[in-house]
Design a binder for these strands. Structure first.
Lengths: 97, 97
DNA sequence: TCGATAAATCGCGTTACATCGATATATGTA
DNA sequence: TACATATATCGATGTAACGCGATTTATCGA
């Protein structure tokens, strides 16, 4: 858990929005493009209004910060929140800030 | 309390460090340059290793995000944490992220 | 094998951020 | 009034982030 890298990852609203969508996938995505065990597939996040390549870069940033994990299934890549890291980060921030 | 602006303000380690120093001023500063009611005066934060003008810019960023308040006393400017905003932000983040 | 789809990567222009030294402004002091 | 100190602002510069379209890579299905 790298606090500084996570804070940088959270400094863009689109990335925060993606994490929030991933918190309740059933609420935001149709079952065609997500399943509660696999996660949500990458293309779905283009609904934030950004291009495919830009969204892919944001997802890579979230992944580098370990806020999400990716799993390739066939031609799709499914993303899930990394709840352990997220809650460790929130604990650390609440304690130290 | 503007979540996105606060997250951007926290995306630089020096600014986080300043907030942490301000959490326990007695621990980090001599009483000559701080008092628990007035706060800590600006020049003290140059101990992070950055120049006077850079530190001033970081303090301005923290102020814009309402994470700190500034009070001019004579030729000095004293900075204090804005605990209300900070705790509201932490609550919001823990709930929404 | 060939065309379609998903996603990552590349190349590029643009904008924002970080940093510094120099200067300006305000205040305190001799 | 003149000088010293504290801070903010300015101007310049380098670097990182953002965003896009185009391309590449991988996988699927016909």
């Amino acid at each position: 858990m790298n606090r500084d890298e996570i804070l940088k990852a959270l400094s863009h609203p689109a990335r925060v929005e993606i994490l929030q969508w991933l918190k309740e996938p059933e609420q935001h995505f149709s079952s065609d493009h997500m399943s509660s065990d696999r996660g949500v597939c990458a293309g779905q996040f283009e609904r934030c209004g950004l291009s495919q390549s830009t969204v892919s870069a944001h997802l890579a940033t979230l992944q580098r910060a370990n806020l999400v994990t990716a799993r390739k299934v066939g031609q799709w890549v499914y993303f899930r929140r990394n709840e352990e890291v997220i809650s460790a980060f929130l604990r650390e921030l609440s304690a130290s800030l």
